[in-house]
């Protein structure tokens, strides 16, 4: 009779062990996920394939720009968050198309697709070594997603075993400007 209990006990322990391992060991996506490269505003981060430096964050309610000879104005149900940054390929020509605004609550906002044709938009043109691009990432986020966010920059939206720059952005950013003209932004 006692051997039956011993067997049941062993089974229970094995089940608990397996459940614990499933719960608390990192998953496949985490093991093969992005390789983080942490930094702050104004710091140049050198990853595999590119270097990035974020300089400034601006908030705006409306953005104006000229695309394909037409004046375009964009407004939002939330707010536009602009990150002025510098990108450079290293050591070979490459594209960096995975810019994400990671809010303090954990939501991931991909750079807004509503600005096609806007001047100096980062992440669209290919980067070249020794020819840095200075430009802007534009995100559209709800107001509560502004404070304490992180800027993620990588070659793709879901980098696998590749660099992802994680730039901590300021905790408070003040009130958004009513209107910003992208053509008049100071990029330097």
């Amino acid at each position: 009779m006692s051997s039956v209990f011993a067997k049941l006990g062993a089974l229970l322990i094995a089940a608990l062990l397996l459940a614990g391992m499933q719960r608390f060991t990192p998953g496949y996506t985490e093991i093969t996920g992005p390789i983080p490269l942490k930094g702050d505003l104004g710091e140049t981060l050198a990853g595999r394939g590119f270097t990035v430096r974020a300089d400034k964050v601006l908030l705006a309610e409306t953005l104006r720009f000229k695309a394909y000879g037409r004046e375009v104005e964009r407004n939002s149900g939330g707010v536009f968050a602009l990150v002025i940054a510098r990108l450079e390929a290293q050591p070979t020509s490459t594209t960096v198309s995975g810019a994400i605004w990671l809010s303090a609550q954990g939501a991931r906002f991909v750079a807004s697709p509503r600005f096609q044709g806007a001047p100096r938009l980062l992440g669209t043109d290919r980067l070249e070594p020794s020819l840095p691009q200075r430009g802007v990432f534009i995100f559209e986020v709800p107001r509560e997603a502004v404070a304490g966010a992180t800027l993620l920059v990588a070659a793709s939206r879901w980098p696998r075993l590749d660099t992802q720059a994680e730039i901590a952005l300021p905790v408070t950013l003040g009130t958004p400007a009513p209107l910003i003209d992208l053509g008049e932004l100071a990029y330097e």
Binding site: N75, G78, R108, F109, V110, E140, P142
Partner: peptide, 17 residues
């Protein structure tokens, strides 16, 4: 996307359109 009168390409979390 009626806000832009342009093709909708993606929706951001928490922003109804």
């Amino acid at each position: 996307l009626m806000r832009d009168k342009a093709m909708l390409s993606a929706l951001q979390p928490g922003l109804p359109e």
